[in-house]
Computed example of a mutant assay.
Amino acid sequence: MERTYVMVKPDGVQRGIIGEVISRIERRGLKVVAMRMNTMSLDSAKKHYAEHAQKPFFNSLISFITSGPSVSMVVEGKNAISVMRAVNGATNPVNAATGSIRGDLALDTGRNIVHASDSPESATREITIHFKESEITGYTRADEACIYEN
C-alpha cells in the first residue's frame, strides 16, 4: 500500500469542514493512518514548501499556512497519491472537477482547502517533516476485502 501526506489547510479548519474532507477520503476507500491538528511552525512550513522558495508567492504562502491550525494526515491505500490528488481536484478550484473537494468547496487557488503530495518522493519528504514513523499506525480496515481485489 502507498502512503501520502494530506493537509486540511487553515482555511478548511476555519470553515469547519475537516470532517467533510476526512469523510471524502474514507468514503473513497483510503484510510487515515496518522493525524494531528496543530499550527505549523515557520521552520516546518519552509521545509514543506521549499520547492516554492524562489516564487513570488512564497512569503504569503508561508504566512497563510502558519496563520492558524491545520490538520496533517498520513493517508494509505492502493495508488494513494494519485487517488488523493483526484479527490482534492485541480489546484485552481475553477478548474477542479465537480465532486472533488476543491471543485465543490473552494473558489480561489490561495484558499483551496487541502494539500496532498504530488509524487512518492514528495510524500516521503512531507510525511517525515510532519510525523515520526512511530506516530503512524498500521492497521487493516474491516472493509478492505470489499475495496481491493486480491
Rank of each mutant, 00 (worst) to 15 (best):
A96H: 06
V21Y: 02
H130E: 02
S67H: 04
S82G: 10
R85F: 13
I147F: 08
G89M: 11
R15M: 15
S63F: 05
I25C: 04
A116P: 15
R111C: 13
K31T: 08
A86Y: 03
P10H: 03
V87I: 15
G77H: 04
I65M: 15
M1D: 05
G29Y: 10
V74Q: 07
S60Q: 12
Y5N: 02
I62P: 03
K46F: 01
L107N: 13
A34C: 02
I136D: 09
G110A: 14
I81R: 03
L42R: 13
G110I: 11
M84P: 04
E144P: 06
K78C: 12
E20H: 09
S67D: 01
E2T: 12
T98Y: 10
R27V: 06
P56K: 04
A34T: 09
R102Q: 02
M37C: 12
G99T: 05
S44P: 12
V21P: 00
I81F: 11
Y148D: 06
L42H: 14
M1R: 02
N95W: 03
N112H: 00
G16I: 12
T109Q: 07
S60W: 14
V71C: 15
I65S: 01
E135N: 06
H48F: 08
N150K: 14
E76H: 05
Y148T: 00
K47D: 13
V13Y: 02
S119Q: 07
V94W: 04
L42G: 01
N88G: 08
I17T: 00
V8T: 02
S82F: 04
N112M: 10
G68V: 02
I113T: 09
N79V: 03
E133K: 14
T66S: 06
D118Q: 07
R141W: 06
M35G: 10
V71F: 09
F57S: 00
G103L: 07
N59C: 03
G77D: 08
L61I: 11
S134T: 12
T66R: 11
D43P: 08
T128M: 07
G77F: 05
H48C: 01
V13K: 10
E149W: 12
R3Y: 08
C146M: 11
S23N: 13
A34N: 05
T91V: 09
G12W: 02
T66A: 13
R24L: 10
D43Y: 14
K47I: 09
R3P: 15
A142F: 03
N88P: 10
G29H: 03
L105T: 06
I62M: 11
F64W: 04
G103H: 07
E51K: 02
T124S: 12
V83I: 15
I101K: 00
R125S: 11
D43H: 14
E133D: 15
